[in-house]
Simulated assay, not measured.
Amino acid sequence: MPNPLLPGLQLQPLPYHDRLPVRDPSSLAMVVIHCTELPDLATAREYGERVLYDSGAGNSGHFYIDRDGSVVQYVAPERIAHHVRGMNADSVGIELVNSGRYPHWLDSRHQAMDEPYTEAQLLALERLLQALVLQYPSLRQIAGHDQLDLEQVPASDDPAVTVARKRDPGPLFPWQRILAKVPLQPLG
């Protein structure tokens, strides 16, 4: 049976999916764009499967978009995923596979995020966002993870220097292009 949200969407629920709290879909207000800051989708899956909380759940977005444009759903939008501190209850997390600062996330000498997003990823993101807005009309805003988690932390190479804990989706994310294609308002 094809998934009604998006043609080609691959459903691959995380092992703890059914432990995540259910929410009213009409409470969804924001989409948060992330990048995995990992080398590939398989590694992102491994990170997503790690249990980090007493509830038996871990950190994960709802949707992952690989470099080839394939879209995988790890968590249904009707469930609360752990993808951005303090903003999970009413948001949907979309992760784009991108190396970001990997593997030196907090090293002050490696803060560049210079891997461009692929055309296939961006087209898939546009289709997914359009489908989400149709399915969940309460979605009104879009933000990057870096806009919601502003914490500065000591750099791993020099604790006297601070770096952003989260920088994704990064400086190469084409906000103008995405905002022109979807009826979501930027945070602010």
Rank of each mutant, 00 (worst) to 15 (best):
Y136I: 04
E119S: 13
A76V: 04
E78L: 03
R67S: 07
Y47R: 10
Q12V: 11
D18Y: 02
D149M: 01
G93D: 09
V22T: 13
R85Q: 08
T36R: 06
H34N: 07
Q130I: 03
A160Q: 15
P2Q: 15
L96K: 06
H104E: 15
P169N: 04
N59I: 06
L134E: 13
H82S: 10
R101K: 04
Y53I: 01
T36L: 08
Y117P: 13
S99Y: 00
S60I: 02
V133F: 10
R101L: 08
E151K: 14
R177T: 08
E49L: 01
S70W: 13
Y117F: 15
W175S: 11
A42M: 04
L129I: 05
P159C: 02
S27Q: 07
I33F: 00
P183F: 11
L11W: 15
P7A: 09
A112F: 13
V22Y: 13
P25E: 13
R109E: 15
Q176A: 12
G170W: 05
G144Q: 00
Y102I: 05
A180V: 09
D149C: 04
A120D: 06
H145D: 12
Y74I: 00
L11I: 11
V153D: 12
E78H: 02
D114P: 01
I80M: 14
D18L: 08
L129Q: 04
V31W: 12
H82M: 12
P21L: 14
D149K: 02
A124C: 11
P21F: 12
R127A: 15
A57I: 12
L139V: 03
A164R: 11
P4D: 10
A29H: 09
M87T: 09
D24P: 01
P169F: 00
L9A: 02
E95L: 08
V31Y: 09
K181T: 10
S108P: 04
R45H: 09
R109N: 14
G100E: 00
P21E: 15
A76I: 02
V51T: 12
Q130F: 12
A124Y: 13
L132N: 02
V71N: 05
A112M: 12
R45F: 13
D40P: 07
W105G: 08
L132D: 01
M87G: 06
L52P: 00
H104W: 13
L20A: 03
L6A: 11
V84D: 07
Y47A: 01
Q111D: 07
L123W: 14
P21R: 12
C35G: 06
Q185G: 03
G8S: 06
V31N: 10
E37V: 00
E49W: 00
Y74T: 00
Q130C: 14
P13T: 06
D158G: 03
D40R: 01
